[in-house]
Design a protein around this nucleic acid. Structure first.
Length: 344
DNA sequence: AATCGTCACAACCGCGGCTGC
DNA sequence: TGCAGCCGCGGTTGTGACGAT
């Protein structure tokens, strides 16, 4: 008996999302929160399957998503974490709260994989045997190869760290992640001043371009290459002043574009951490106007206060990498204590 | 100017885990 | 305990942008 499709194939729209669909989806989630995706298509009238709605939200519209170029810190984090965790993009993304797993996955596949294989090639030419290429380990082999993989991950991290030991940034990563050597009380991750593009910003950009360009224009271009003014509602004259092309690193201030509601129509919103809060609902009409009229820029400093949970293994790995001393016994000790199952 | 190849990324697909009944 | 439905994840595909020829 085959698994039933997640949604009716007939009448379900596929392909790029239009600005109208985005608005409808965001409006709905503003009111009801990002849950019960099954009900979203029927309640919104979107001819999309629930899965598509969820993906659109989590990968694109969700507040707090950072777009544009990956920073050096992020790049190194991804490399380290990939060596540590493998292709568990969701797990890796949990350490980079502003990036989606899809983003990280794409970045890995398009940039980092090539970069690392190039480094590997260079290393092999130089006689080095460093191994940073990801390994696929089947579940059955997992336990047997655990030690090897850990060692390889450790080696990869050590190699990465030693590649540019003079790089203060690298030191900063470790020190920021593990101040006082205790990951459980770690400071926030090394979030850099950067652009935090949220759904509202995206929507506004979409709308802006939508009205300027032909509808045939791709969402991708609309979302990343167009100019956008954060205060476009209040100051339409200033919309031409700033571009936010990802290749330029975009806006350099630590700002976050979120939804802001007037006291009367406030019913649900996301807080600074992007967490949805629903309050008494009393206004269901004209959500589009609500969105378009309430785009606002708010400080995003609180994001820096997020706690990054690191597992014992990661603590071990990073600490060990900093010391560049083999401590296999440490892991064996943990394994003997039966703690390894909690490591991943 | 047209064509082709490559790149980047949004979106889709299928599978597996989780949860409620 | 088994089943069905929902959700999340990772792999893959489709397509527009862009540069080279």
């Amino acid at each position: 008996m085959g698994r039933p499709p997640c949604c009716e194939k007939i009448g379900v729209k596929k392909g790029p999302w239009t600005p109208e669909e985005d608005i409808i989806l965001v409006s709905y989630i503003q009111q009801h929160g990002p849950s019960n995706w099954r009900a979203v298509p029927s309640n919104t009238g979107l001819f999309r399957c629930s899965k598509s709605c969820r993906l659109r939200w989590t990968n694109y519209l969700r507040p707090g998503i950072k777009r544009g170029n990956f920073t050096e810190h992020e790049e190194k984090m991804i490399i380290h974490l990939q060596a540590l965790l493998g292709n568990r993009w969701a797990a890796i993304a949990s350490y980079l709260p502003e990036r989606t797993d899809n983003d990280i996955k794409n970045y890995w596949n398009t940039h980092l994989k090539k970069k690392l294989s190039k480094i590997n090639r260079q290393n092999s030419e130089n006689g080095s045997s460093s191994e940073t290429e990801p390994k696929t380990v089947s579940k059955g082999q997992w336990e047997r190869r655990l030690q090897t993989d850990i060692h390889m991950a450790k080696q990869a991290l050590c190699d990465a760290l030693s590649l540019d030991k003079s790089d203060d940034d690298e030191i900063m990563i470790t020190s920021k992640l593990f101040p006082m050597g205790d990951p459980q009380i770690t400071n926030p991750p090394p979030i850099q001043t950067s652009t935090y593009a949220s759904s509202a910003e995206n929507i506004a950009r979409l709308l802006e371009n939508w009205t300027k360009k032909s509808p045939k224009k791709s969402i991708s271009t609309q979302s990343s290459n167009s100019s956008f003014n954060n205060n476009n509602n209040n100051n339409p004259n200033s919309s031409s002043g700033r571009t936010s092309s990802p290749s330029e690193g975009a806006i350099s201030t630590t700002t976050f574009v979120g939804f802001n509601y007037s006291e009367e129509d406030q019913e649900a919103k996301f807080d600074d951490a992007g967490v949805f809060h629903q309050e008494e609902s009393n206004n269901n009409n004209n959500n589009t106007n609500t969105i378009n009229n309430n785009i606002n820029v708010i400080n995003r400093g609180d994001l820096d206060n997020q706690i990054m949970p690191f597992s014992l293994l990661e603590k071990w790995l990073f600490d060990d990498a900093a010391a560049t001393q083999g401590q296999d016994g440490y892991f064996m000790e943990m394994a003997a204590m039966g703690e390894t199952s909690d490591l991943f």
